[in-house]
């Protein structure tokens, strides 16, 4: 198993563990990275040209973010499988990306309900990727 895929799996387990321990902000951090690491793994292993292009663009233009660009490229590859699921995945991942940054850096409380929503998003993200891409 790829180390990146293993880290994604570990972060997913950590999300459940941290929610159980009522450590909500760290749970959100791990939940996001569980999804992001799986996306990066798929790009590197299945669509390496896409990943190289992203890195090259960021280096040359110094514009855009690695995370945003990876999510966009991944969704582009996912979309032919199922347009509805792709839109849901895009919506969930961008929602989670923004919320993770707020959770990590803003002086805001993270509530149990937020952590439970994150768990739903993480589970659905992994489910949809498995369902269509078999990863």
């Amino acid at each position: 198993m790829s180390f990146l895929l293993k880290k994604s799996d570990q972060n997913r387990h950590a999300t459940d563990f941290l929610i159980d321990k009522m450590l909500y902000a760290p749970a959100i951090h791990c939940g996001y990275y569980s999804c992001f690491q799986k996306i990066v793994y798929i790009l590197i292993d299945y669509y390496p040209d896409d990943y190289d292009f992203i890195q090259q663009q960021i280096k040359e233009r110094r514009k855009g973010s690695l995370h945003g660009s990876c999510i966009k490229a991944f969704i582009g590859r996912f979309r032919p499988f199922d347009r509805r699921d792709a839109l849901d995945l895009d919506t969930m991942l961008n929602d989670l990306k923004g919320f993770r940054i707020n959770s990590d850096y803003n002086d805001d409380e993270v509530k149990p309900a937020d952590a439970n929503k994150v768990k739903e998003i993480v589970d659905k993200t992994h489910f949809l990727i498995k369902r269509h891409m078999k990863v």
């Binding site: 514009k63 919506t91 929602d95 989670l96 923004g98 919320f99």
Partner: peptide, 15 residues
């Protein structure tokens, strides 16, 4: 636009 993204939200969203 060559950077950033659009994200749809609902009442169920985190943001």
């Amino acid at each position: 636009f060559d950077s950033g993204d659009v994200c749809f939200l609902t009442d169920k969203s985190l943001i």
